[in-house]
Structure formats: structure tokens, C-alpha cells
Write a protein that binds this DNA or RNA. Structure first.
Lengths: 206, 206, 206, 206
DNA sequence: GATGAATGAGGGTTCATTCAT
DNA sequence: GATGAATGAACCCTCATTCAT
């Protein structure tokens, strides 16, 4: 059951294992040995394909960004009623974080290291141009239709939408402890989703 | 320049150095040698006063929580107009994160490790009971006075207020990169502060 | 409940704690902190009274030697029938090792370190002169009375008597394992005692 | 002078160096750095091959047990006159301890630690089954031929044979000191060998 | 493309001992 | 006689990376 002689699968198995390990333990806490073992690959292969632990981390991060942006594009927000579009985006973002906690941890690690990997990546930058355009379009249409108040910056809005979910989920352990509540109980999650939608939509009202 | 024979100062110098190093490098990335050196103390003293790296991390975290909650209490929110109180809290929270980036990184580390330190800390739990009471009171008064919509959960609201600032600031490196903007430029920071205030107050409107 | 101002008790408590710790963990494995804690004394006192860990070890060893030789002298072997005297000595030695396992461990440690403490101790040497004299006397009387064979060296005999018990008891863990028997079960201990007595008495027969 | 690329030699060099260091300094006193240096290997290799200092100790112990039992088997005791067989075993055991002092120290360490390594080792247990069988056979033949007294337990006898040499040699430093004799002078060693043979054979007589 | 063996720098922690009071 | 605070050397172990095959 060796994974010999299927370079693509070897590569992608390493990347998957790495994403998992980086997510669970952070960049510094991830272990090259563990990643190789989990991927069923020789440690040397990891260097063969990715060059270094840092490069592997960047590859994992790029891949994760690509995935969320891909899923986002499929929402088809441009052709919907502005309020509906915002609601969909809010719910999608919440659900995505909920379903992909590793993505948040990857972001956390990258920011702990002051974005030193992402800075070198052209791909990451390119992935995000469309997102801003789309949001700007929705906001404009909402303003014209008298639904939204004026002057809302699409970037600020996106960061708000993401932040409402990110902070709750990425910091769920400390928040659960300080507030004495299990914030990831099923009912709590549902309540949070409704809260965020209400917050954002109300905040945009004229 | 020995720092002999002033146990309190030695202890607090170690704690300060530790907070800094944990903030900059995360729990795993922090170095016991570096902390001791920065504190001008012998490495052994760190263990003498705190027992282990993990216990030192918890001490740093508890201290940080205590500081933000102390500052928060000084806002005297109970005796203010509900809208004013919320605005002050929002601005305070933003300013605090802005002025204490190490606090965010500490939280990030603790959550990466699934809250395993904070779980053992009674102190952290106790520090937060008053905060929720205060917020609940403000929301009630706002409802009674017809200013705020009903049914807003104080815990959810607090997480929103904090999340709006936390995500923007803690993830400033990746966000700056993906949106192609310097999010910590002075003007950008001012814009974000205004955005958050507007978001939260608008969201609470009846 | 401080043990202030009773120097003799402090000293002897330290010595007792040290003997225990050296016995349990060996010279290298013993811990100065643990000894002080167990003695309810400040660590500095240990150095005040004994000078160093090594000197403390020697003190413990000397004290232990003194105790076994004292108990031995009380057997009053000189005035007994030679066979009876040997039997008493064999049984005493066995019982003493059984009741004072820490003595064996102390000896083990000292020999691991090639006797470097005992070499400096005049006291230890002096403690043992009478023992050889006594044994020599018993053997001579036994020979004259036609009970024992000739030419048995008292030192060799003593080492045999001690060795029969020492090896069995000091190596009880490995021996129990390799022979698949619990050598310190009550019945096993009784059997060993009888075996040793029989061995030695039979070996001395004419 | 790199010792690259000969895994078997590397492994066995580490094991040999470890055996020496454990023997000389005990388990606690042995130093991983020293072992690696003496083996001409990188310290990391020690962990690569053996996992931990404790596992390395067990490996050394197992290997030492295997060696003495191997040499013992070569004595071919089953086909000899019972008295001759016992004599050969006694002399072999004495000579082996004399020639392999490290084996005694290893046993001493293991027992200081209450047999915690050997307990996990199936190999050690298995190595010793044949020995007891052989001794039992010799004793039975001796009884039938009217040479030996009845009721001697082979395990007890073996422990006596080993103990007579072990105690004398392992405790040679303290014993030499307390009796004021050099017990490892050539003549003393010869005398001890003769003493043990005489003791054991006389003790078995009918 | 793939492998097991090897490396050296440094990780957190513990130690016996001493200083200032 | 007694104490808490301080020291620096060293301990076992782990890491990302590279070499030889």
C-alpha cells in the first residue's frame, strides 16, 4: 500500500496533512514529522515538493483562501436583492467558519507571524479583488433602492461580517469560559447566526 | 546591576517580560531564556515564582484580563444614557485592543490551545460576571426608554462589539494584504472606529 | 510548629530525612530540596550542619553502619554454643536487611561511587574491628569442639552470611522477574531464611 | 571519520557505550551526551534507535542478561557429574561477575528503581526459564545418586551461588574498607573463589 | 520520486549551592 | 540558628533540515 509513483496524490496528501497540523497546532507547533507520517509520505518528500516548512505553510494558506473564495463566488450575489444578498453572505461566512475551523487557525498563525508568508504571495492578493467589487455593487444597489444607508465601505462591511463570526468561533474557548456558557452548543450556534444576521441587516438600514 | 532581594519587583518583571514574549511569539514560540533575559532575571527564578512555562502563561493571561476589566469598570457605564454608554464601551474596546495588541495575541494563543489554561482559572471566570450584569442593565434601560430594539442578548452584543475590533486588528496583516490597503494607517484606524460605532448603534436602533 | 531553636532535633531530622531519600533514590537521585522539605527544615540548614550533599551522605552511611553494629553486639554471640551463635548471626543479618532495606541501598550507592565517602571515614573502619574478632572466636571454638571444619576465614564467612541475604533482598525486583516468583511474599521470605541457615550451617560442618 | 550509513554498527556502538556509562554511573548518573560522544554518534541517534534514556537502559540490561545466559548455556551442565556441574556453575558465575563488573552495576541500578524496566520486558523473563530447569535436573540427579541432601530449591540455590560472588564483588569498596583488606588483590580473589566452591559443595552434602 | 540515517542547535526544566538579611 | 531569593551549569529531549543511496 505504498503511495509510490503517484506524485500528484503524494503532494496533495502532504498538503492536506499539513493544513490539518498547522490548524491544530499553529505554524510553530506543527511538526514536520507528524505531517509526513499523517500523509503516509517520507519526510524528504515534503521538502522535495514544498521546499520548507514555511513554504508548505504558505501553500496551505493559499489553498484555504482559494477554497473559501470559490465557495463564495458560487453564492451568485450579484443577481439578488441587496438585502437578500447580504443575508446570504453573512450566513455563508458564518457557516464556512463553523465548518472550517482550520481556516481560522491558519489566519491566526499567519497574523501572529505578521503576515510574512502572505506578503510574498501574489495569488492571495488576486483572489480577493472580485470580492470587494461584488460587495461594492450590492451596497450601491441597496443605496439606490433606498434600502441601505449611505457611505458604507465594502471593505469595512466585509470585515464586520467576518469578524462577527470569526471572533465568536476562534475565541470560543476563552469566551465560553469567561461567560460561563457553552458557546458551541447547538442552540447557542443557532442563536449566534440569527444575532449576526440581525446585527448586520439592522446596521445597514437607512 | 543585580536585581537581588526585591522579590516583588523580580516577579513582576518576569511577568511583564513573559507577557511581551508570549504576545509576540505565541505560547509555543515564546522562549524561556528570552523572557528571563528580558526580565534581567535568572532563568531559574521563572520556575521559582511560576512553576512552569504554562503556569507563567496563565499568570500573564489572568493579569491581562484583570487589566482590561479594571479599565472597563472605570468607564462608569451604569450611570449614563444607554446610547452614550454603548458608544463609550465600543470606543473603549476598540482603543484598548489598539493600545494592547499583546492582549489579542494572548487570547489567540489560549484559543489555539483550546483554552486549557483558562479552564483551570477561577479568577478569570470571576472577573467577568460584573461585565455581563452591566451590559444587561444598559440594554434594559435602552429598551424601556424606547431607544433599543428588544431581545438583544448582552453576551452576544459584547462579542459583537469586541469582535468588530478584534478581527480587524488581530488579522490586520492578512486583511491588509488581501484588500490591498494599509489597515493600520492613521486614517484607516479612525475610519474603522467610526464604522464600528455606527454599526453597533444602528444595529441596536428600534 | 516551627522547629526553631532546637538544633539537635533539626540536625537529626535532617539526617533521618536524608537517609530515607538516599535510600530511595540513591546518592545521585536524592534531592536536597526534598530532604530539607521532609525534615521540615530550611535548605540552608542542611549545609550549615553537614557542609554538602556528599558529607550528608557519609553521615547517613556512618549512622547506618553504627546502628547495625550496635544491634549485632547485643546478640551476645561470644557466650553461646558455636552453632547457635552462627545461627543467631545468620538470622539476625537476614532480619536486619529485611527490616532495613535502606541500609542496602546506601551500601549500593556507596559502592557505585567506588567507596569514595567511606574511604575518608575513620569511624566506619573502627566500627568493624570487634565483629571480626567475635567471628574468629566463634570459629575457633567450633573447630576445637569438632563441630566446624578447619580453615574457614571469618571475613569470608561474614561476607557469605551477609551476601546470602543481601543479594536476595537488594535484587528482589530483578530476581522476582527473572524467576517468575514473588520473592518477598511472606512464605517466600520464610523459606529463604531457612535456606540460608541450612546453607551456612551445613557448609561449616566437619 | 564519520560513522555514516552503517545503521547496525551505529546502533551497537551506542548500546555498548550506554552499557558502559550506565554501569559506571548508574541510570541517573549516566549522561546521554557522554554516551553519544563515546559512541561517536550524534545524540539524536540515541533517540532515533532507542526512544529514550530509559528504553536504552532496558536494552542494555536485556543485552547483558542475554550474554551471561548464553555463556552459561555453553557450560553444558546437563551431561556432567552433579558435583562437577555445580562446581563449574559456581566458578563460572564468579568468573563472570569478576570479568563483567558492569553487569552487577546494571542490576543494582535496576533494583534501585524497583525493577521498573525489567517489568516491561518479556525477553528477560524468557531468558531464564532454561536455567531453572537445568539446575533442577542437576539437583535431582545428585539426590538420586546420594550425593546431595534433599529438598534444595533450585532457585534458592542459584541465588546463593550468585549472591556469594555478587555481594563480595559489588560491595568490594565498602567491604575492603570495613575489613581493612584489599579484597580484590589477586590472592584475595583466588581465596574467595575457593571459599565459595567449598561453601556451596559442603552445603549440598548429604 | 523515494527512503532511512544523520545532524547540530537549542527547547524547557532541574540541580546543588550560596547570598543577603 | 534560620530564612527566602538567587545563581549558572547541565540535563534529557526535540526540532527542521540534509545526506547517501
Amino acid at each position: 500500500m505504498k503511495n509510490n509513483r503517484d506524485p500528484d496524490r503524494t503532494r496533495s496528501r502532504i498538503l492536506a496533512a499539513a493544513t490539518q497540523d498547522f490548524a491544530r497546532h499553529g505554524l510553530g507547533g506543527a511538526r514536520v514529522d507528524r505531517i509526513a507520517a499523517r500523509a503516509g509520505a517520507n519526510k524528504r518528500m515534503l521538502y522535495y515538493y514544498f521546499g520548507s516548512k514555511d513554504d508548505l505553510f504558505l501553500a496551505a494558506l493559499e489553498e484555504s483562501y482559494a477554497q473559501i473564495r470559490n465557495a463564495e463566488r458560487a453564492l451568485d450575489l450579484e443577481h439578488r436583492d441587496p438585502r437578500e444578498a447580504i443575508k446570504r453572505l453573512v450566513e455563508f461566512t458564518w457557516d464556512y467558519y463553523l465548518g472550517h475551523p482550520e481556516f481560522m487557525t491558519l489566519l491566526g498563525s499567519e497574523n501572529l507571524h505578521e503576515g510574512r508568508h502572505v506578503r510574498r504571495s501574489r495569488r492571495v492578493r488576486e483572489l480577493h479583488t472580485p470580492l470587494v467589487q461584488t460587495l461594492r455593487g450590492i451596497l450601491r444597489r441597496g443605496e439606490r433602492e433606498g434600502l441601505f444607508r449611505k457611505g458604507v465601505d465594502p471593505v469595512q462591511l466585509y470585515i464586520s461580517i467576518a469578524g462577527e463570526g470569526y471572533f465568536y468561533l476562534s475565541n470560543r474557548y476563552t469566551l465560553s469560559r469567561i461567560f460561563g456558557r457553552d458557546l458551541v452548543a447547538r442552540r447557542a450556534l443557532g442563536a449566534r447566526a440569527r444575532h449576526i444576521v440581525a446585527m448586520v441587516l439592522n446596521a445597514l438600514r437607512r
